[in-house]
Design a protein around this nucleic acid. Structure first.
Length: 925
RNA sequence: GCCCGGGUGGUGAAAUUGGUAAACACAAGGGACUUAAAAUCCCUCGCUUAACAGCUUACGGGUUCGAUUCCCGUCCCGGGCACCA
């Protein structure tokens, strides 16, 4: 055994050993319990960053731990290989996206291998290969036939200069990131997946996901947003025709009464299809002129306080009103400015303009004016809202701004039972409370929230103007992307047959790999050799769809494909039954930033695949049994602005940071030129902000084990971690100390490990107790708590205690052997390379990774005496020693007799004595 | 703006079910060894105080014998918001 720890020699040797013994190969074996340990696959951005190291180390620790517990472990890895950065890189460096991606995969795979993860590389997959996306296209066509995929208009960010659709990330302060031109909203036809059809199940199943963090379940619940409310209508009164619900004949010439009838309710009545605006060709705006304005509200109890209504700029009523009103038309144009991101819409200034159109309040018969509001979204709900400024904060401020009436219709009792005062001058939070009762509401006065909603809904229903309705916040999933580097949508547009799904024998629709990326429009739409095709139904000339799918689609089922990545004839096969038996993936690990979208879409796709019948008799409703959401690894961001005011992000490694005496940053300069840079926020490591830290330097200098140990020791996995390499040195030092301890023991000679505390001298019995306490704690930390920093600390404590214990004699040598073997095995999941080597020296010929995890010897934990903390009035005043079996009375007596206790009781009698068994005694005087 | 988290020494953090706040480390300071350096080992290390002791878990309240932990409010930081992945 070498005297010194040399990771550079020992790590490749250990990795070679695992490769030769196929240690990580996972083979279906029904005689053993399986453990499917899944980490979120990376986007091949170029290099691993610390977030990856953290994620995959957690996965590897759990995988290796469960292997040592006897499970048949599967730990796969793959590449989420489609996406925007490849197109950006193509534009910047003139590399085709495919070549760039495969190059990145190759490098990152090498990095992953150098970290020693026990990954079954035979199951590796990349989503950009036809072998993978073939099945995504196949399922798409099945879903299209089932009506679970449909087409409607959707709103996107449009860059009028680059003539291209932008991602929300590419819209900066309302302008296109490359052109700098103000972005506009534009409606284009897109394919949607009907996730709303599964809203109820996606919500209900959250309650069964007991292995998921409460936080994530809550976020998904709020995202789905089930609410029960009332959908009702305001009959529309057109100018000059007060008192009629019908459009003026002058405004809609040539429309027969029957046609009017059919076109009446707009948007379409309730039901899943109600918000689909089918196709692009619906130019007959006049025909769609509504005679009722439908809205949805969860606050029907405030209906008597409606003083105006607001519709989206794209609402047909708005368009109609704008025809003879150039000012309104200009305002509607203004509303189309800016992007579509909800965060921007929610924080922008609320603006509106009256349409001159009035609607009739369905209960009071009063005339209520319709406004166009920039904060009302066409794609959400009915594209129209009732406004109750008295009891909705946004409406309140809107009404104040435009001088619209504010009417109190809900009252509440304050402290002492007096009525709370309502003022139209200043908003107070209780105005929006559901705790009050109706006032100024005629027959509804005095009713509390639920009773009022019920009564009002019943009255609306009686008039045929509304009913109670369940509504979800969740919207259908738009999957069309006007981009190149994605999975082609397998649809053929035929002038005679319409949209035709590509038949199975023509799948996959292969994405051409040699293209020119210009950043303006989709390259596929400029490639006749791609889009020119014949209709599979009629054989006529047709055009292939050139949009690709949202990359979230690939990541919604990759975990199923890992079971059978080699199957060329089916999406999944019976191997799924083995790995997804017993409730699915046993442990899924990934960043908390995926709490909603990725995890919800994956749940959805699993249900879709189930309902297409792909799982046979396997009961699989949810893909992930246990979920560990790791906190993000965050790092500071730095940038400079160029002449056009665009931000150039600078990597933290290239920056010198100056701090004040309290450690707060006061300035930063670029190392290269010494000139100042601007300090941005601390954010998750991301390519777009160039604040990723490459772990390679760390691995090169200290080895994989130190990198793994350090990142596990830095903080618990679910906590976000601000990156700093201070302390890496300490991790390396610990491994060196561990090596030295084993070396010195082996030098004297290995012996059989101690197996019992019988006959051990006191100090050695104490150490052995500490050992088995540590085993119990580490097992619990790995298994139940999934908190690895405390497991490492516990082993450090154990080794510190061993250092302080005399272990020279025969019993001591045996105990030292037991302690060292256990310590090495306990650390093995975290630092497997050094563990593999050291265990080989302690147990020649043994393979640490195939050794059973140490078991706690309960008999070693026994103690005759316990120390209890002594408190007087809750303050620490000393300690008492009592027999391990002492009863409450004995403990009380010992506590009261204690000198320190008597001093702080100052002669007063004890009012009460609280005894917490095994912990403390508190004397209350 | 809305939804979800977080805030404990100079730093990363620990305290698992309401029961000793600061375990385990890092950094710093002092010492030993050394011609010297590195490495290693030992000691000190929340704040106030000469000491006794008092104070301390972002801030302000509350519940409790006892609160980092539970409740209410405030501030700050991070994540998500449907086309970053």
């Amino acid at each position: 055994m070498p005297e010194k720890y040399h990771p550079a020699e020992l790590e490749p040797a250990a990795q070679q050993h695992w490769e030769q013994t196929a240690a990580a190969r996972a083979v279906e074996d029904t005689t053993r319990p399986k453990y499917y340990c899944l980490s979120m696959f990376p986007y091949p951005s170029g290099k691993l960053h610390m977030g990856h190291v953290r994620n995959y180390t957690i996965g590897d620790v759990l995988s290796r731990f469960h292997t040592m517990l006897g499970y048949n472990v599967l730990q796969p890895m793959g590449w989420d290989a489609f996406g925007m950065p490849a197109e950006n890189a193509a534009m910047q460096n003139n590399v085709p996206p495919a070549a760039w991606t495969y190059q990145n995969i190759e490098y990152m795979k090498k990095q992953l291998k150098s970290l020693g993860f026990a990954i079954d590389w035979q199951r590796e997959l990349a989503t950009c290969t036809p072998q993978y996306y073939h099945w995504e296209q196949w399922l798409f066509t099945r879903l299209y036939e089932k009506g679970l995929v449909y087409k409607k208009l959707g709103t996107v960010n449009w860059d009028p200069v680059d003539q291209t659709v932008l991602a929300n990330e590419q819209v900066i302060d309302g302008c296109g990131w490359r052109s700098g031109a103000p972005v506009e909203k534009r409606e284009i036809p897109m394919y949607y997946m009907k996730i709303t059809a599964y809203a109820e199940e996606l919500l209900a199943e959250l309650d069964n996901l007991s292995g998921w963090p409460e936080q994530v379940r809550l976020m998904q619940k709020n995202w789905i947003g089930k609410s029960v409310g009332v959908r009702f209508a305001f009959p529309v009164v057109y100018p000059g025709k007060a008192g009629t619900n019908l459009p003026s004949p002058a405004l809609s010439p040539g429309l027969s009464p029957k046609g009017r009838e059919e076109a009446s309710d707009f948007p379409l009545p309730q039901g899943e299809g109600s918000r689909e605006r089918e196709g692009v060709g619906g130019e007959g705006g006049e025909a769609a002129l509504p005679d009722k304005l439908w809205v949805f509200t969860t606050r029907a109890d405030t209906i008597m306080g409606v003083t105006f209504c607001a519709v989206a700029a794209e609402h047909p009523l708005a368009a109609h009103a704008a025809k003879n009103n150039p000012q309104l038309a200009a305002f509607i144009e203004e509303c189309k400015q800016g992007g579509v991101a909800e965060a921007d819409l929610a924080t922008m200034e609320k603006k509106g303009m009256p349409t001159g159109i009035f609607v009739t309040h369905p209960l009071t018969g009063e005339q209520v004016e319709v406004w166009v509001g920039n904060y009302v979204l066409m794609g959400y709900g009915e594209g129209a809202v009732m406004a109750v400024p008295g009891h909705d904060e946004r409406d309140f401020h809107f009404a104040q701004k435009y001088g619209l009436p504010i009417q109190q219709v809900i009252g509440e009792k304050g402290e002492g039972g007096s009525e709370k005062g309502f003022s139209t001058e200043a908003w107070e939070d209780w105005y929006a409370s559901k705790e009050g009762y109706c006032v100024n509401s005629g027959k509804y006065n005095g009713l509390a929230y639920e009773a009022a909603v019920d009564a009002i809904a019943a009255d609306l229903a009686a008039k045929g103007l509304g009913e109670k309705k369940v509504q979800f916040r969740l919207r259908d999933w738009g999957i069309s992307r006007q981009r190149y580097w994605g999975c082609p949508i397998p649809i053929i547009h035929c002038p005679t047959c319409g949209d035709v799904p590509v038949p199975d024998d023509q799948l996959p629709v292969v994405l051409p790999e040699n293209v020119e990326i210009t950043g303006a429009g989709s390259p596929l739409a400029r490639m006749p050799e791609f889009y020119e095709c014949t209709c599979p139904l009629c054989g006529g000339k047709a055009r292939r769809e050139t949009d690709t799918m949202d990359t979230f689609v690939e990541s919604s089922w990759y975990f199923l494909r890992y079971c059978c990545p080699d199957n060329a004839t089916a999406m999944v096969d019976e191997r799924v039954h083995y790995w997804f038996g017993n409730g699915g993936v046993d442990q899924y690990i990934g960043g908390i930033e995926h709490a909603i979208l990725h995890l919800l879409y994956s749940r959805f796709w699993t249900k879709l695949m189930r309902d297409v019948g792909l799982f046979g008799d396997l009961k699989l409703d949810e893909p992930f049994k246990n979920l560990l959401t790791q906190g993000m690894v965050v790092a500071p961001t730095f940038y400079r602005e160029n002449a056009e005011g665009k931000k150039q992000w600078i990597n933290p490694a290239e920056v010198d940071l100056k701090t004040d005496e309290r450690g707060r940053p006061v300035g930063a300069t670029l190392k290269a030129d010494g000139q100042p840079v601007i300090i941005g926020g601390t954010e998750k490591m991301a390519k777009s902000k160039n604040n990723g830290v490459d772990p390679q330097a760390l691995i090169d200098q200290y080895g994989a084990d130190t990198a793994r140990l350090f990142i596990m020791f830095a903080s618990p996995p679910d906590q976000s971690l601000e990156w700093s390499d201070a302390g890496v040195e300490g991790g390396f030092r610990f491994l060196r100390r561990l090596w030295k301890a084993v070396f010195e023991h082996v030098q004297v000679g290995i012996v059989a490990a101690c197996t019992s505390s019988d006959g051990l001298p006191g100090a050695q019995a104490d150490l052995r107790r500490k050992l088995h306490q540590t085993i119990a704690k580490v097992t619990d930390d790995y298994g139940r708590r999934k908190q690895f920093n405390t497991a490492i600390a516990a082993v450090m404590e154990l080794l510190n205690a061993a250092d302080r214990t005399e272990l020279a004699g025969a019993t001591g040598r045996a105990l030292a052997q037991e302690v060292l073997e256990a310590a090495v095995l306990m650390l093995f999941p975290i630092v497997p390379h050094i563990g593999q080597a050291l265990y080989g020296y302690l147990q020649p010929g043994a393979d640490a990774g195939k050794t059973v995890f140490p078991k706690c010897d309960e008999s070693a934990l026994k103690q005759d005496e316990l120390e209890l903390v002594l408190q007087v009035n809750g303050k620490l005043r000393g300690a008492i020693r009592v027999g391990a079996t002492a009863d409450k009375a004995t403990i009380e007596a010992a506590a009261l007799a204690n000198e320190a206790a008597q001093k702080f009781m100052e002669g007063k009698p004890a009012k009460k004595v609280v005894v917490v068994p095994g912990r403390l005694v508190n004397i209350v005087v």
